[in-house]
């Protein structure tokens, strides 16, 4: 008499299958992968497949990690080396950010920069920049300055490109709005184009953070001095592979620190970018 559906029938049940490997929480997945790699590494060295000079065992590496860590904590010579490299990275990054930003504004804001300066920048950027290291050493000596120069040189280009791209990012409507408000070129740059470009600039800074590390260490490999790079080269020449491994791990902490400082600054300054703040705006 009515077309009401009978209540006796079962509910429609969806069964979604997820494999156990994808169902693992991050901490477990990361730990398992770590354990698997270290175990494999241990077996490879234990069974003598690889010479210990090429690949030291995990235990040896751990012992050296502890040794280097102790040396760093007690403020021995390794801390001094790390401090030298930190200074190189810091000043290199600062110089790259300043010059990269100014060149980026020149290229992104002026027709002259776009037409005349950019082609040369692209040409230099395609060169293997590490090849300039001997020049920097010849010009600036074996002290920290030549390493700072190489680090800054490598890190500048991504910032130029990102800054210029950021200045183009403002939409046609936004430009029209500023024009209709009678904004000067400087006002449009400061109040519209630079804030709009900030997310791009931070992307450039992140790429530069990686480049500046590579530049600093390469500089120290080639130019000697008192930095961490020199320590690594010295240990490598003595076939002290576990020490090289340990030093690289501590060095990577410096890179991580720089990288996440940039990420932190981006979250702080680009607070309106929803992609950077998932969940905050619902």
């Amino acid at each position: 008499m009515t077309d009401t559906v009978s209540d006796d029938l079962p509910d429609t049940v969806w069964i979604e299958k997820t494999s156990w490997i994808d169902a693992m929480p991050r901490w477990l997945a990361m730990s398992l992968l770590f354990i698997a790699v270290v175990t494999l590494w241990d077996l490879v060295t234990r069974w003598g497949w690889v010479s210990p000079i090429i690949l030291p065992s995990p235990a040896e590496t751990l012992a050296d990690l502890i040794f280097v860590g102790r040396n760093l904590i007690t403020g021995d010579y390794m801390l001094g080396a790390l401090w030298t490299t930190t200074k190189t990275v810091f000043f290199g990054f600062l110089i790259a950010a300043s010059i990269g930003f100014l060149l980026g504004v020149l290229v992104g804001e002026t027709k002259f920069g776009e037409r005349a300066v950019m082609p040369y920048l692209v040409a230099i950027d395609t060169m293997p920049k590490v090849a300039f290291a001997p020049l920097f050493i010849a010009w600036l000596g074996f002290d920290i300055a030549s390493k700072v120069a190489l680090a800054a040189f490598i890190a500048t280009f991504p910032i130029v490109v990102a800054t210029a791209a950021g200045l183009y990012a403002a939409s046609e409507n936004e430009r029209m709005l500023f024009k209709s408000m009678g904004a000067t070129r400087m006002q449009t740059l400061l109040r519209l184009k630079l804030p709009t470009g900030l997310p791009y600039m931070f992307t450039g800074l992140k790429i530069a953070a990686v480049g500046v590390m590579a530049g600093a260490i390469t500089g120290e490999f080639l130019g000697g001095g008192k930095g961490f790079g020199a320590l690594i080269r010295q240990s490598a020449s003595q076939m002290d592979t576990p020490r090289v491994f340990a030093l690289i791990l501590y060095l990577s902490l410096l890179g991580l620190l720089l990288y996440f400082t940039v990420v932190w600054a981006q979250r702080k300054f680009v607070f309106w970018n929803k992609d950077q703040r998932p969940g905050a705006l619902g």
Binding site: S171, N173, M176, L177, R191, P195, W272
Partner: peptide
């Protein structure tokens, strides 16, 4: 003036 998009500056 008013445009198709609100064009409010998000910061």
């Amino acid at each position: 003036m008013m445009f198709q998009q609100a064009t409010l500056l998000p910061w």
